[in-house]
Nucleic acid binder design. Structure first.
Lengths: 216, 216
DNA sequence: AGTTTTTTATTGAACGTTCAATCAATAAAG
DNA sequence: CTTTATTGATTGAACGTTCAATAAAAAACT
């Protein structure tokens, strides 16, 4: 039933169907036939809109990463006070946002992460996203502690966030977003508490934000 | 060139070849032909010794998990003093042991983790291992803090360890074992420091170790 | 307003490829 | 001469892609 302007609708439909299929049977068994069936369309249409299965997979990963980035940005925008701590909390909240933390998303995310080890195009997407998260974290920590410490803190918090996703994706009960958020926030507390006592005396903090950006 | 008693040799050979193949091209493209070529044998032999490809993959995952467990156990045995903190440090050291943290192992480990989301047999292996790590952590933390705190600390440290592996597996430069160890140990420091101040006054600590075991 | 033509969207069967598993043949060791 | 270990060609199933056919909608025309 061809209407005009189907392209954006079909693309969304197929991306969603891809996540559903991966959630159901895993990336390895997510065939084009199965994805198409999930979307209620024919298999051929995938090549038509995405140039092939790989194109669809890449588009799906793009969607997940941009959704995640958008959720973080939204949390940042909601902030009333602009302290480094509040910013860091917003990053955590964004990463465990209800709209993001669903079984299909978590499982698809992990599947792509594993897959990106050997697919250069996916690896690039992953890396860009990764660096952005790390940069954001580091820029904020930098305002509260020396560079070395800030780097370590960023690495640690990033690892906690990814680790919680990872474990959540595998757990039979699904990712417990609320518990994960609490664990990540508690980690942040401890990371800041460590240098809070020092921060009072040594005022290395909050100078310019230009040097705060750290490209690993 | 058939000699007797080839079975254990071939099994080891093929398991190692599996990791090498996954390191090289990923689980999705690790065909039996490629694995066999890596081991310098014919493809048919895989079905002969492992009953099929799935059997080989399961055996490979078993190997990785048992190696990891063995490394942790070895670090614990080396301990001179038996404080909870030393035990926790040993768990961390074991998880980032040089013999374990290689590219083939890290990549295979992650590939299996992703795969186990949809393969019940692998999921079971993963879960058993997971619970063991969590139990070990919780038993030690329990000697230093109240149960609720101990659970949160265990979850956090487990997430940090897995998160560091995860990020290490993807990073182009490979997993930086030394840096990861430092980050994990620093996290442990902070987790203990938080309740150290309390531990001095309230002596909830080091009583019996029977109630310390916590099955999640 | 009705009819024809063009454009756009979609289908699904056919094709070629790839893979895991099988098994009869083979060759060394006991 | 029997047993054990190994091979590699073969088989059948499954997959992604392609493309001619189709059908609906839009545009053009009378």
């Amino acid at each position: 039933m061809p209407k005009v302007g189907m392209e954006p609708i079909r693309r969304q439909q197929l991306i969603k169907a891809t996540m559903a299929a991966i959630d159901e049977v895993g990336l390895a068994d997510a065939t084009v036939a199965r994805i198409a069936r999930h979307a209620g369309v024919s298999a051929g249409i995938i090549s038509h809109y995405f140039g092939g299965k790989d194109g669809l997979l890449e588009a799906t990963m793009r969607q997940i990463l941009s959704d995640l980035g958008e959720a973080v940005a939204a949390c940042r925008r909601k902030l009333r006070n602009d302290t480094p701590r509040a910013r860091l909390e917003a990053i955590i909240e964004g990463n465990f946002d209800r709209s993001q933390v669903t079984d299909p998303v978590a499982k698809t995310w992990l599947a792509f992460w594993a897959s990106s080890m050997h697919k250069p195009r996916l690896a690039r997407l992953q890396q860009v996203n990764d660096r952005r998260l790390y940069s954001n974290l580091c820029a904020q920590f930098r305002r509260l502690m020396p560079l070395d410490e800030a780097r370590l803190a960023s690495r640690t918090l990033a690892a906690v966030i990814d680790g919680l996703w990872l474990r959540g994706a595998l757990t039979p009960e699904g990712l417990d977003a609320e518990g994960a958020r609490r664990a990540a926030l508690a980690t942040l507390d401890r990371l800041l508490a460590a240098s809070d006592s020092v921060a009072a005396s040594s005022s290395v903090a909050a100078s310019d934000s230009a040097t705060a950006i750290d490209a690993r």
